[in-house]
Nucleic acid binder design. Structure first.
Lengths: 197, 197
DNA sequence: ACCTGAACACCGTTCAAGT
DNA sequence: ACCTGAACACCGTTCAAGT
């Protein structure tokens, strides 16, 4: 007589997501997840192949969350204002859930990267706004520039990497204003003589 | 009769640094370091207080290396060219030693951050170049913007985070050209009516 | 078909005992 | 004063045995 499942992949990932937020990546152990799902550790292997895959699924869940918050944030109407709103939304996420944010762009065990569809959905609001600012041909390179800057800034901030004085918030404001201005100025939409060298 | 030391803190950190490069952070175990220094794992605790401190010392060594490479890179004469050279030097380091690079800005066990003097030395060449581009008042915020962008970009690249097509190198070139232009344009040195809003 | 306890190889770390 | 083996509590993971 088959035993009914006491847990599920969805419950396991949700438990892992919660444990990551409260206890960090080191606290995300198979035993801890098993305890949270009311099962023993070996049973988890009926649902995930190993801890690395579980971590990858949790990271995908985090990316989906960030994407939906970005989606809600970019509603200013003004593209430059939207870009600022996107950056602020990322910063709020990072400060609310530093462990979750820390899992983004973690060089995960090379085998397989994250679900491309989830990745694309999270990138969509950024691409939409940079497209409005820079035009369609430069939307992607501009989105990569903004995402790289924001993720790098926030990671440095969370890691305590700004040690040389001055207010960190000033550097954040400077950075996003600089990027919004420059990306708009380099648009292929408003001008056709491009000022690149 | 006292036993002479078979190893030293310098040898331990150097061994850890080499193991990090070849086997990654997960491979940097106390046993592995002990083996490389010709000693048993418990003996390491006469020289470091725990693995977290050893990892922190290795991270400090990595930062020092990056700093010295940045120092050698910024020799173009032209500030914008120097900024590009700094970014390229960081990219070359990241590609040559992804595990070492990955340890930069890792949210380390909060207790103590890295040695501020080493950190300041590594930041110095970036600050010098951004100072030439943006003027002394904006040198720090500009340096933070460039460092955030470069570290975020390279981390995303190493993590396989650029999944939406187009050449990654194009996005890198776009980003550094945009930053060099914009930081120069926002200088408090060449103009006194600042175009910030 | 899923769950379990027992087992294995590995961690980091402590500590009494050696020299 | 430093090094060692033995031990402890913990990992991730496998597997035969239960239902």
């Amino acid at each position: 007589m088959p035993t009914p499942a006491h847990t599920s992949i969805a419950e396991i990932v949700a438990a892992g997501r919660a444990i990551l937020a409260t206890e960090g990546l080191d606290g995300l152990t198979m035993n801890r997840v098993a305890e949270a799902t009311g099962v023993r550790a070996p049973s988890l292997y009926k649902h995930v192949s190993n801890r690395a895959q579980l971590v990858r699924l949790v990271a995908t869940a985090v990316i989906a969350e960030v994407g939906s918050e970005l989606d809600r944030a970019a509603t200013t109407g003004d593209p430059a204002g939207d870009l600022r709103a996107l950056a602020s939304a990322m910063r709020e996420f990072a400060q609310r859930d530093p462990h979750g944010f820390g899992l983004l762009f973690q060089p995960l065990p090379a085998e397989s990267s994250l679900d491309p569809a989830v990745y694309a959905a999270a990138a969509a609001p950024v691409l939409r706004v940079t497209g409005e600012l820079a035009g369609p041909d430069r939307a992607l390179v501009a989105a990569r520039t903004v995402t790289a800057w924001a993720s790098g800034f926030l990671r440095m901030e969370l890691a305590g990497g700004f040690q040389l004085g001055e207010r960190v918030a000033d550097a954040f404001d400077y950075g996003i204003a600089l990027l919004a201005d420059a990306i708009g100025a380099h648009s292929d939409r408003t001008e056709h003589t491009t000022p690149t060298r």
